[in-house]
Design a protein around this nucleic acid. Sequence first.
DNA 1: TTGTATGCGTTATCAG
DNA 2: CTGATAACGCATACAA
Lengths: 351, 351
Amino acid sequence: MKIRIVDIADKAGVSAGTVDRIIHQRGRYSEKTKEKVEKAIQELGYAPDIMARNLALKKELHIVCLIPNPNDTKYWERPISGIHKAISELASFKVDIKTVLFLPRKDDFKIACEQILQSNPDGVVYVPMFLQESLSFAELLNDKGIPFVHINIHHSLANPLSYVGQDPIAAGKTAASLCAMALQKNHHILIAYISKEKQEYSHLQDRIDGFIQYFDHKHSDQSQIFHLDIKTNKDESEYDKQLMQYLNKHPNIQLIYVPNSRAYKIASILKKYKRKDFIVIGFDTLIENITYLKEGYIDLIIGQQSKSQGFNAVMLLFNALFRKEAVNPQNLLPVDILNAENIDFYEGLMQ
Amino acid sequence: MKIRIVDIADKAGVSAGTVDRIIHQRGRYSEKTKEKVEKAIQELGYAPDIMARNLALKKELHIVCLIPNPNDTKYWERPISGIHKAISELASFKVDIKTVLFLPRKDDFKIACEQILQSNPDGVVYVPMFLQESLSFAELLNDKGIPFVHINIHHSLANPLSYVGQDPIAAGKTAASLCAMALQKNHHILIAYISKEKQEYSHLQDRIDGFIQYFDHKHSDQSQIFHLDIKTNKDESEYDKQLMQYLNKHPNIQLIYVPNSRAYKIASILKKYKRKDFIVIGFDTLIENITYLKEGYIDLIIGQQSKSQGFNAVMLLFNALFRKEAVNPQNLLPVDILNAENIDFYEGLMQ
DNA sequence: TTGTATGCGTTATCAG
DNA sequence: CTGATAACGCATACAA
């Protein structure tokens, strides 16, 4: 038996219109009728019918997603595809979801934020790539009472409605535990990455910290951990040599841990020099990484369900806004372990 | 701009009622008006409004799920929890979803099938645990034109609307690839399992086959693969001894592969004898397995997203029935690799 | 064979 | 401050 708005109107001895105004706090009602109505709602256990609401609704809900341009970093294609999945899943609701892209520079990010604030959305999903700029954006959104969700990068300060993404420390520890399992006695680990100009914030350091922490807590064995940071401002052949020279100098290195999503760069060098004798472990299921995984130049990839980042964030915001559901402030995604055998079944990657 | 039923009625020069009868093929219309209407639908690109339809609908959709009783095998708790998630997700639709449990015996399965057929459901989700009985159930459902989805176990013969579950061969290969990574030179593998009376069908053999296949394709090394099948019709202390004697007789066994979900049984024996020097790899995230994983008596678990099995199956059937969506005949779930570091983030296990 | 009217539960407008 | 009522898009019983 379904409780409708008229049922509680009857019970409270008022009309449906009044109940509606009280439920949506549109004003124009007295305190004592409010109390009567709320009591009736409690007693009968009223829950609104989403379908009927959506049918009767005049105005749409506006949600906007601010994501780095995938032309610059391929990674962002997958969260965007998750957003598209959410869009089609919510197609029958009166909600419009837009995606705004920004180039990974502070000025472009700020311009995009401005633009979004102008459009007065009902909710925002964004990647807080720059610490300071993200905080001021969060503040402006809070001032306007617009709820927002962070994806991929977690800032404890900004106090978003929710964070959707992985715990990068846990991801680092997971990678380390696999390394510990694969590493032979008296062999060493190299933490290597090819990085662009200094990123203000990325998972890089947390993934390294988690990795180190794991080994600190375990028996240390005879293994050592080396570090090699290669800057991309040199030409390609230059950093090829830099890596190979390092590896030749430390012949007991058996395993290479690449804490950013560019393991494929390391793999391409190893392929060039026909060195399949290393175990390489990297992050993120970019198509380039998958190619080398299947060729055997990358052995393990830690996945972070990039698609779910976009999908969950939008769904969560929608449910909070439309159905007024309570939300978890943390939506921690799994730390997925992928290799050549299970990659084909991952996140509908091959569809 | 939204195309409604009256829009195509206008365009075709008929009334809304006629369009409705044609769309739902309720008869009582002439061929030539049918053509006119279908042309209009094509040209205007009509898609029904799910919300309005659900609101206007009188009768509900009945979906029934036939699942083994989790009191007997704990595994089934998770698919059932996935079904419950689907139920709450579909709460606002006019659909009722029931779960029927059966004890893992042919006679009980058959009785449950009878009962379901009596109730004349619109769609069925079931675990085809017994080959012959499942095929005849499938046939009866087909005769009545009732679509059905198989979960967990795949029978190519029965021709279900879809199969939701893992590829067990791929799961075996994935386990093998991890073993290959962890195994030290000149050390051996034991495939061990404690089984009840012969199961008619389970993933067991496929998981073993996939495992063996992987090693067949790789350089064989000096490693050997041993097999040990322990029957549960002895008393506990009996099979404790059987395992330990086997391990003592083959001191170079470093790794134990348990292809069914009862790795915790093996782990409990190893714990009793304080043997942490083996790498144990098992299947399924039963609470018992997770406990030993965290204690270090199990090292790796292959997960099959048991919860998604139930959830996806119901959602898929609902979408096929209610929104008349096309469905993939295969809904292959990922092969998840879990260890002590990433288990806490898996499938909302810890919520 | 076809058209019309009513209802589903909610929102929103307008008259009291 | 409050009540009545017309939409929203579709299904369906009933009238023609």
